[in-house]
Simulated scan of single mutants.
Amino acid sequence: MRYDYVVRAIRPEEWAEVKQLRLDALRDPVAHLAFLDSYEEAAGRADAFWQDRAVGSGEGGTAARQFIAEAADGTWVGSATVLIEEAGTKDWAGCAVECRQGHVVGVYVRPEHRGNGLIKALFDAGVEWARERGAERVRLFVHEDNARAQSAYRKAGFVPSGVIVPFVKDAAQNELEYVLDLRP
C-alpha cells in the first residue's frame, strides 16, 4: 500500500492530537528504550502540560519545533521534535554543548507506516528548521539495543559520533549519539 504524507510543524491548538500521538508512541513495544517517560506518566499529565508543549514546539516556537507526518486522511502517523541547544551551555547529560545544534527527540512512526522513508522526511523538515536557526549540526541519542532505530537514523544520514552516555533509566545500559554535520 502506498501512502501520501504532509510533513509540517504542529499548530499550538493541536495539543490534544500531540497528546494522543505521544500516548500511542508510549504503547509501542520498544517505548521503554525510546522514550524517557511511561504511558502512565504521560496519561496522568494535565491538559495544561500538553497545551504548553504544543505552544512551545508549535508553529512560531523558537527553541523547539515538533514536526508531524499527516496521512491523506488526516491521521497523524509520525513525529519528531527538534530542540535548539546553544554553544556554551550544558546538555541534559551535563556535557558541554560545543556548537549551536539541533537535538532530535521524541521520534515515532506508527508501525504500519514504517520502512518507507517517513523518518527521513520528518528529519529533513527538522534539519532544515535547525539549519535556518544557525545550527552547525543536528544530533540525537539512541539506545544501544534499538537496532531498528539506529538503522533508520543511518538511512536518514546520521552517523555515530562515538559519544556514549549512560541510559537515564538504567546506568548499566547506554545511549549512542548520532550526528548530522550541517557545516559546509
Results as ranks from 00 to 15, higher is better:
residue 2 R to T: 00
residue 3 Y to N: 00
residue 3 Y to D: 01
residue 5 Y to F: 05
residue 5 Y to A: 06
residue 6 V to I: 11
residue 6 V to R: 05
residue 10 I to Y: 06
residue 12 P to D: 04
residue 13 E to W: 07
residue 14 E to K: 14
residue 15 W to K: 15
residue 16 A to Y: 07
residue 17 E to Y: 00
residue 18 V to N: 14
residue 18 V to Q: 15
residue 19 K to N: 10
residue 21 L to V: 15
residue 22 R to T: 05
residue 23 L to K: 02
residue 24 D to A: 12
residue 24 D to V: 09
residue 25 A to S: 09
residue 25 A to C: 10
residue 27 R to D: 13
residue 27 R to H: 13
residue 27 R to P: 14
residue 29 P to N: 02
residue 29 P to T: 02
residue 34 A to N: 01
residue 40 E to L: 12
residue 41 E to N: 11
residue 42 A to M: 03
residue 42 A to Q: 05
residue 43 A to V: 09
residue 45 R to S: 14
residue 45 R to W: 11
residue 46 A to Y: 11
residue 46 A to D: 15
residue 46 A to S: 15
residue 49 F to R: 06
residue 51 Q to H: 05
residue 53 R to G: 01
residue 56 G to N: 08
residue 58 G to V: 08
residue 59 E to A: 15
residue 59 E to G: 14
residue 60 G to M: 03
residue 62 T to D: 15
residue 70 E to V: 10
residue 72 A to P: 07
residue 73 D to L: 06
residue 73 D to S: 09
residue 74 G to P: 05
residue 75 T to W: 02
residue 77 V to C: 04
residue 78 G to M: 00
residue 78 G to W: 01
residue 80 A to C: 08
residue 81 T to S: 02
residue 83 L to Q: 14
residue 85 E to C: 09
residue 85 E to H: 12
residue 87 A to P: 11
residue 87 A to T: 09
residue 89 T to Y: 01
residue 92 W to K: 11
residue 93 A to D: 09
residue 94 G to W: 01
residue 94 G to S: 02
residue 95 C to P: 05
residue 95 C to W: 10
residue 96 A to R: 08
residue 97 V to I: 08
residue 98 E to M: 10
residue 99 C to M: 08
residue 100 R to G: 04
residue 100 R to E: 05
residue 103 H to E: 13
residue 103 H to Y: 11
residue 104 V to L: 01
residue 107 V to R: 15
residue 108 Y to P: 15
residue 109 V to C: 03
residue 110 R to M: 12
residue 111 P to G: 01
residue 111 P to N: 00
residue 118 L to D: 01
residue 119 I to T: 15
residue 119 I to M: 13
residue 122 L to H: 07
residue 122 L to W: 02
residue 123 F to V: 02
residue 123 F to W: 03
residue 124 D to A: 06
residue 126 G to C: 02
residue 126 G to N: 03
residue 128 E to L: 13
residue 128 E to M: 12
residue 128 E to P: 13
residue 129 W to D: 06
residue 129 W to N: 06
residue 132 E to F: 03
residue 134 G to W: 00
residue 134 G to E: 04
residue 135 A to P: 05
residue 135 A to K: 02
residue 136 E to I: 05
residue 137 R to C: 12
residue 137 R to F: 08
residue 138 V to E: 03
residue 138 V to Y: 00
residue 138 V to P: 04
residue 139 R to G: 09
residue 139 R to A: 12
residue 140 L to K: 02
residue 141 F to A: 04
residue 142 V to T: 07
residue 142 V to W: 01
residue 145 D to I: 09
residue 145 D to T: 11
residue 145 D to K: 14
residue 149 A to T: 04
residue 150 Q to H: 04
residue 150 Q to E: 13
residue 152 A to P: 13
residue 156 A to D: 01
residue 156 A to V: 04
residue 158 F to S: 13
residue 159 V to K: 10
residue 159 V to E: 03
residue 160 P to L: 03
residue 164 I to G: 10
residue 165 V to P: 08
residue 166 P to K: 08
residue 167 F to H: 12
residue 171 A to R: 11
residue 172 A to G: 13
residue 172 A to H: 09
residue 177 E to A: 07
residue 177 E to T: 10
residue 178 Y to C: 05
residue 178 Y to E: 07
residue 178 Y to W: 00
residue 179 V to C: 11
residue 181 D to G: 08
residue 181 D to S: 04
residue 182 L to Q: 09
residue 183 R to M: 12
residue 183 R to E: 13
residue 184 P to N: 12
residue 184 P to Q: 14
